[in-house]
């Protein structure tokens, strides 16, 4: 069913994040002639051979699959740029380098469907994987600093997939801290009398079970 991803794992499933990323604009060079498309999500085209035009990623991939165009990879997807980014990521252990919000999904889709359009595809691919690993390692070390006094976690320049993976964990962790911290959770003398105490702390314990261990977080990437 549409939109019924398990809310306990993450708010958006990987497919849904990809769906969102598919609306990013991409430059393509068609090799056929086609009239403009007046779609619900906008008007695109006209398509003329060898004349570049901008379309959403899903449209680019659809045309590419049928052999009707070549996709021009975005500027940041070059060995030179990515090497710079990787170095910057390694140099600053606490900050994230600004990257396109959907870089994971875009690169993944292009690797899957438009390998032949990306120069040095193997190099680019391994660079992006390295960048992803370095960044996720930072997220993990960042999560370790969450404590009872954490009221907010600021993670600037995090990308869609990264946010989506850590969101449920951060939300539940902060929630757990908040619960244990709140005066309501500390049994008051008068409520102990008419309510068995284990009822009061059953909530957090059940929740604690559903925490996803950090190790598996990385695996879901």
């Amino acid at each position: 069913m549409a939109g019924q991803s398990d809310p306990h794992l993450s708010i958006f499933s990987a497919e849904e994040v990809e769906f969102i990323a598919e609306d990013e604009m991409m430059e393509i060079v068609p090799n056929m002639k086609m009239d403009p498309l007046n779609l619900i999500c906008g008007d695109f085209g006209p398509f003329r051979p060898q004349i570049a035009t901008e379309v959403p990623l899903w449209l680019a991939v659809a045309l590419k699959k049928r052999g009707k165009c070549t996709i021009r990879p975005p500027q940041w997807m070059s060995v030179e740029k990515l090497t710079q980014i990787l170095e910057a990521e390694r140099e600053s252990p606490r900050e994230f380098h600004p990257l396109p919000f959907h870089y994971v999904e875009i690169s993944r889709l292009l690797f899957d469907h438009a390998r032949d359009d990306i120069p040095d595809v193997y190099m680019v691919r391994s660079l992006i994987e390295d960048i992803r690993d370095v960044r996720f390692h930072k997220v993990e070390t960042g999560l370790e600093t969450i404590s009872a006094r954490t009221h907010a976690v600021k993670l600037k320049n995090l990308s869609a997939m990264e946010v989506n993976i850590v969101r449920p964990f951060i939300v539940r962790a902060l929630q757990a801290f908040y619960k244990h911290d709140s005066p309501q959770m500390i049994p008051q003398p008068d409520t102990i009398g008419n309510r068995p105490p284990q009822v009061a702390d059953r909530g957090p314990r059940v929740r604690a079970k559903s925490h996803m261990p950090l190790g598996t977080l990385a695996d879901t990437l």
Partner: peptide, 26 residues
């Protein structure tokens, strides 16, 4: 009409329908 064009229109339609259905179901 060119089957390619039709299929592209259909894809666009499917995407919008997915959004709408998912929104209502949530």
């Amino acid at each position: 009409t060119d089957p390619l064009t039709v299929s592209l229109y259909q894809m666009d339609l499917d995407r919008t329908q997915f959004l709408l259905r998912s929104y209502l179901r949530i």
